[in-house]
């Protein structure tokens, strides 16, 4: 039986999650009522989708800071379309195409113009945000039709909204892409050693462009989920969401140096952050404490990563072992 380090990591977060739920449930039993648990999951859908997308770019050793702005562009443009009579499903398709396009633009800046991912997407974060403002003149888009809202916020089974199933579907697709396709294999290879991957005859540029495109799709889906849930869309939506998404990925074991990361980890990370936030509210803590708690979770998770590295290093120092 082979046990990968990733598995330990995921096990670790799962344990942390269970312990945390136990503690909050002890403080206030309301916390583990079905409705509250559904609430936790629902609250993690937006961040989860953004985080899954951003995980793809982080695995390549890059980053996409523009997800929050892409998210806003999709919200206002899809919002404007569906309020003007475009059928909901067509709106969703167009939203996905917009997200994909903005992501590909990022990818092209990074591969063709050879910009550093941080700078390229920092620039586009501002550009896309500006686009969202310009499109609506700064006003929110309101009165989203019921049919569109039902696509994401409707209830299928009991009280669980559609968006939770969308997240699961999206996660499965992302997981399969990462683990079962050439694209996924190349993403990990590029993050581990871009030079060696290029010298292996892999089309590194194209792979990276796809990664950013996929990240854009994640932002688009997240945007449409929020649009459906709130019934209105603002061009200011999603400011600082990129940081929360990066946090979820990092807590889930995705290395910002590239080459490592899983969808399960990222999902657990998003869930953990959401459970923490809801827990603090239920426990009656002042909402300002959320920031402190979230920050500490990120730092502690990062420290676990460092300890893990150190253990691995020590193991490697021993002479080569033949099993």
């Amino acid at each position: 039986m082979k046990v990968r380090l990733d598995t330990y990591r995921e096990l670790g977060i799962s344990i942390a999650l269970v312990v945390m739920i136990g503690v909050f449930a002890f403080i206030n039993p309301v916390y583990i009522r079905t409705n509250n648990l559904i609430d936790i999951v629902q609250q993690s859908t937006v961040n989860g989708m953004l985080a899954i997308g951003i995980t793809f770019t982080i695995i390549t050793g890059g980053i996409d800071l523009s997800v929050g702005s892409t998210f806003a562009v999709v919200i206002v443009s899809v919002g404007m379309l569906v309020t003007n009579g475009v059928p909901p499903l067509v709106g969703v398709a167009i939203g996905i195409i917009i997200g994909l396009t903005l992501g590909i633009v990022n990818g092209l800046l990074i591969t063709k113009m050879k910009l550093q991912p941080f700078i390229a997407t920092l620039g586009m974060m501002s550009v896309y945000r500006g686009v969202a403002y310009v499109m609506t003149g700064g006003w929110p888009v309101v009165r989203i039709p019921r049919e569109f809202r039902d696509l994401t916020d409707g209830r299928v089974i009991g009280e669980i909204p559609v968006s939770v199933f969308s997240l699961i579907a999206f996660a499965i697709i992302a997981h399969v892409l990462l683990n079962r396709t050439r694209f996924g294999a190349y993403l990990y290879a590029i993050g581990g050693n871009e030079q060696a991957t290029r010298l292996s005859g892999v089309n590194v540029d194209r792979t990276k462009v796809f990664a950013y495109g996929f990240c854009g799709i994640g932002a688009a889906l997240a945007g449409m989920v929020l649009l459906g849930r709130l019934g209105s869309g603002e061009p200011t939506a999603g400011i600082t969401y990129e940081l929360l998404a990066i946090a979820a990925a990092a807590v889930g074991g995705t290395s910002l140096a590239g080459g490592k990361g899983t969808i399960t980890g990222t999902l657990l990370g998003a869930l953990l952050l959401s459970a923490l936030r809801v827990g603090l509210i239920v426990a009656g803590m002042d909402s300002f404490w959320q920031f402190i708690a979230t920050g500490l979770v990120i730092v502690v998770a990062a420290y676990f990563e460092v300890i893990q590295q150190r253990l691995r290093f020590q193991r490697n120092k021993k002479p080569v072992v033949t099993p």
Binding site: R182, N193, A196, S200
Partner: peptide, 24 residues
């Protein structure tokens, strides 16, 4: 290539993944 570590193989990857990188 001359430099195995920086150009030859990809760290984190298994032998299987490294060997198949050229011919997936």
């Amino acid at each position: 290539p001359e430099n195995r570590k920086t150009e030859g193989f990809v760290r984190y990857l298994t032998n299987e993944a490294n060997i198949s990188l050229t011919c997936l």
